[in-house]
Design a protein around this nucleic acid. Structure first.
Length: 570
RNA sequence: CGGGAUGUAGCUCAGCUUGGCAAGAGCGCACGGUUCGGGACCGUGAGGUCGCAGGUUCAAAUCCUGUCAUCCCGACCA
């Protein structure tokens, strides 16, 4: 395609609204334009990248037997009432009413709809397993859209739903989806890691997330550096081995004055004790009232784990006034002794022999607090956040952490939706059974942005060849020079004949502009027809490695292919 | 949801404190010319309801009130 005819509005300056690098580069390189907060138009280059990403996904979904369908974006509330998620989903669900005042929502996901479809159309075990998927717009009214395409309110997602006869079938399906996802992201040329994950709002039991590794990622992954072990989990979910801590002698409960000592640092500094000997008591507000969470002073609460443990939908750290009203002491002096609230005790706290804790009284703490003796430890659980250096739950090696962008997730849903939507089948004996479901999703637009986050330099984007908008750009240095223009045209035709997608930058711009744009847009390979055309040679340049080779026209296609492979092509 | 900031040409921004000549600059765009291997130069020109509404005033981009939008930070670790 001729660049002079393409809509590629590149920008010299960084738009003021863009903070993260993928957002800046996608705007500057002419891939996207913002329409509203978290809502974007995809211009031709972006559309080409998205097509490549979708193509790779389709190949792999089809390979495991997936059948592509398209379901509506606008969904009747009735479907969501049936699953209970009309209430559960909260303000993130885009809700609307039609002229008859009937309630609808814009779909954030399609479990209800696809299950209702299958419930109506599938009757027999002979029709199972069934895998349906779609690549469709999704809507989430984010509390705060940000990071450009990484957290939008409208985005493109591939979602697949599997329907099996039983748990064994689901287990098999899960393996297939997991492997398919590994192939998908490998083919995209991205550095990624599959990690154990919490199942969140969609519900279900087992889940893995696929993380594109990038320092700018929002998610933290804890992983075992021992390749043979291979443990890796989202920090929201990650566990660690319980290490018994020699934690002092039992002694009589003692009240000490700790005037103005509110924080862990202040209290431990004042008393001359390590933070791991302190019990931190956090009060949380839930829809079922207040609850207390107890972790060691040197630890942080993992709210995802806590929420799961309490079995609540809302979980928010209580405000200062609430804490005072509940404990009778200002913030900083809460403790478990005598506290009349449901309590979740972290297993490390339960393991302490003697500790310091707030006295529920202003400017005072208790010494020698003994879990079990001075307060009940009926509800013990792992509710702490892992940290780098904690022992791996599988092999004990110190865990490492890395940041990532979640681009895909695989779930086992089980029978939750098939029961709610009455998706049953008859087995060989004529017995009615609920289908057992699985699901997996890939954020298509987010993957594009994540690819940029991971693959760029000071000059612009460096697309992996398999998802690049074009494989190469052919760049005549001086379009006024008939020899260069003609050589560029010939090379462009040769590349097309070799099955390569090339763009021809035939704009009558000065060379500097075209070179800058080529770098910014991130074509994996650039073929320059310039001063060496007189000798019958053109330059082939790798965007990623900077490798530059002079070849004659007959060798161009082959050289481009070689450089593409080195740049994540296939 | 709480806090902060911003809104002036397609983009980046100045002007606002202290109201007052015709509302500006750079880039981009159009035309002419010179240039042509890493975002050229000269000349000419087009382009703006100063986010929107109301108010104060002889006079508002500038002051006041409201509103909308966008961005950032936070959403409490006791």
């Amino acid at each position: 395609m001729r660049v002079s005819q393409l809509l590629i509005p590149t920008l010299r300056e960084v738009p003021a609204e863009a903070e993260v690098i993928s957002h800046q580069l996608l705007l500057r390189a002419g891939f996207v334009r913002k329409v509203a907060a978290g809502v974007y138009t995809f211009l031709p280059l972006a559309q080409r990248v998205l097509s490549k990403i979708k193509g790779i996904i389709r190949e792999e979904m089809n390979r495991i037997g997936g059948q592509e369908i398209v379901m509506p974006i606008v969904q009747p509330a009735e479907l969501w009432y049936r699953s209970g998620r009309w209430e559960v989903y909260g303000p993130e669900l885009f809700r609307l009413r039609d002229r008859h005042n009937r309630e609808f929502c814009l779909s954030p996901t399609h479990e209800e709809m696809v299950t209702a479809l299958v419930a109506g159309e599938v009757r027999s075990y002979k029709q199972l397993p069934l895998l349906l998927y779609q690549i469709q717009n999704k809507y989430r009214d984010e509390r705060r859209p940000r990071f450009g395409l990484l957290r939008g309110r409208e985005f493109i997602m591939k979602d697949l739903y599997s329907f099996d006869r039983d748990q064994e079938g689901l287990d098999l399906r899960y393996e297939e989806m997991y492997e398919a996802y590994n192939r998908v992201f490998s083919k995209m040329g991205l550095r990624f890691r599959a990690v154990e994950a919490d199942t969140g709002a969609i519900g279900g039991s087992v889940s893995h997330e696929f993380m594109v590794l990038a320092d700018s990622g929002e998610a933290v992954v804890a992983y075992c550096p021992d390749e043979a072990c291979g443990y890796a989990a989202n920090a929201e979910k990650a566990e660690s081995l319980l290490v018994p801590e020699p934690a002092g002698e039992e002694g009589p409960l003692e009240l000490v004055a700790t005037p103005g000592m509110r924080t862990v640092e202040e209290v431990t500094g004042f008393l001359g004790l390590p933070a791991r000997r302190l019990i931190k008591t956090l009060l949380y507000h839930t829809e079922r009232g207040l609850a207390a969470a107890l972790v060691r002073g040197d630890r942080e609460v993992n709210e995802v784990k806590l929420q799961r443990c309490l079995g609540v939908l809302e979980l928010e750290l209580a405000h200062g006034e609430t804490v005072e009203a509940a404990t009778g002491a200002p913030v900083g002096f809460a403790g478990p002794v005598g506290l009349e609230l449901p309590m979740v005790v972290d297993r490390e706290v339960a393991a302490l022999k003697s500790a310091v804790a707030g006295a529920n009284k202003g400017d005072a703490h208790f010494l020698n607090v003994c879990p079990g003796r001075d307060f009940p430890v009926s509800n013990v659980a792992d509710i702490r956040l892992v940290a780098a250096g904690d022992p791996c739950p599988r092999c004990g090696a110190p865990l490492d952490t890395v940041r990532g962008i979640e681009v895909g997730q695989v779930f086992k849903l089980g029978e939750k939706y098939s029961l709610a939507m009455e998706a049953f089948y008859l087995d060989e004996q004529g017995v009615k059974r609920p289908m057992v479901m699985g699901t997996c999703g890939i954020g298509v637009t987010r993957t594009m942005a994540a690819a940029v986050e991971q693959n760029h330099d000071a000059d612009g984007i460096i697309w992996p060849a398999s998802i690049a908008p074009f494989h190469a750009v052919v760049l005549p240095v001086n379009t006024q020079d008939p020899a260069q223009a003609a050589a560029a045209d010939r090379v462009y035709s040769l590349l097309a004949a070799a099955g390569l997608e090339a763009a021809l930058d035939d704009r009558p711009e000065r060379p500097g502009v075209k070179f800058k744009d080529a770098d910014l847009i991130g074509y994996p390979v650039r073929v320059t027809a310039g001063r060496h055309v007189a000798e019958g040679l053109v330059e082939v340049h790798s965007r990623r490695t900077g490798e530059n080779v002079l070849v004659n026209e007959a060798g161009v296609a082959e050289t481009v292919k070689r450089l593409m492979v080195e740049n994540g092509g296939r």
